[in-house]
Write a protein that binds this DNA or RNA. Structure first.
Lengths: 167, 167
DNA sequence: TATATATTTCAATAATTTCTGAAACTTTAA
DNA sequence: TTAAAGTTTCAGAAATTATTGAAATATATA
């Protein structure tokens, strides 16, 4: 496999993986491209490599920046902007975990708490509802707390704690 | 909030969460409905509760069964089938983790391994590609191994190991 | 200030995914 | 068998999501 074939396969694979996890293809592909690039790229270069439109590139770069995993760079004497991504996989994973927690998990936890707090009326279905939403709430809380610890832990936690985790 | 409002909100919230994680809304909602239900439901009841068509219900129930989180039950003397879901959240989480690993993570790990194995040619971009895909491969491997341990561990691992994990 | 360069926005369009409904199929029981 | 009840399949329709491209906006330089 040549470099270009490998590069292409990587970008395609990353885009497809993103899709199955609710992340739009272009967004995942832009990040993939930056991730293996030796230098920062311009929007023009990204559009060209991935064969996407200016608008698409612009919108997805903005989203990636909102996620905190892509950054703008200016080169002195140059008018246009250059883009890079977080290159450290641990940091990348942490940042993504942090954002997904903030955007998607935390709000759901809040709802689950509310819901499991409806008052008892003694009926079986009501009891079941409270029981089930409460246990879901507890699981989500625990999982999110774990994610949070991971997010706040700056050293490469994962390799260190894996065998400690389930003893 | 009345029981019915709460129930509705739960189903909606669960459907919406599914959507952001690449799971189709009806599928998530059917699972939610079964999860809080005191008894097994027929397809008819599911269609009626969620206002979805027969085809939709049938297809998504099949998928949920393929994921191993919804089961068919037959009641003696009754012709139609009844559906239930896994009621234990830990087991539910385990099963979902197991399937996502098998379907989505493992295949990507395989590709990453292949890609990080392309031969060196000394060029900077080639070196960078190998370095980056390799570190992604290693992260994915470690995370997946962790997931696997979780999956194979039958007791409520999460509450037990959380504080052990990051010390 | 005017001009060129670069970026963002957004309405229109395209692509993809989901859903419907009816026909085909299966199963049970009379 | 035949009929009735239940389920699956799938082509077409609907809904949702992603993408384009051009106008509007912003920014730097002469």
């Amino acid at each position: 496999m040549t470099y270009n074939e490998a590069k292409d396969k990587f970008i395609q694979t990353w885009g497809a993986l993103g899709t199955t996890w609710g992340i739009n293809k272009a967004m995942a592909q832009i990040q993939a491209l930056l991730f293996i690039s030796t230098e920062a790229l311009t929007m023009e270069e990204i559009m060209d490599e991935l064969q996407i439109s200016r608008g698409n590139a612009s919108m997805n770069l903005r989203q990636l920046m909102d996620w905190g995993i892509v950054f703008k760079e200016s080169k002195r004497g140059e008018r246009k902007e250059y883009f890079t991504t977080e290159k450290d996989v641990q940091e990348l994973a942490r940042q993504i975990a942090k954002e997904r927690s903030r955007r998607e998990i935390k709000p759901v936890i809040k709802v689950l708490k509310e819901l499991s707090d409806i008052k008892k009326d003694g009926s079986a279905k009501n009891d079941e509802f409270i029981k089930q939403t409460k246990s879901l709430y507890e699981l989500a809380e625990t999982a999110d707390t774990m994610l949070e610890k991971m997010v706040n832990h700056k050293q490469n936690w994962i390799t260190k704690s894996i065998f400690k985790m389930i003893k």
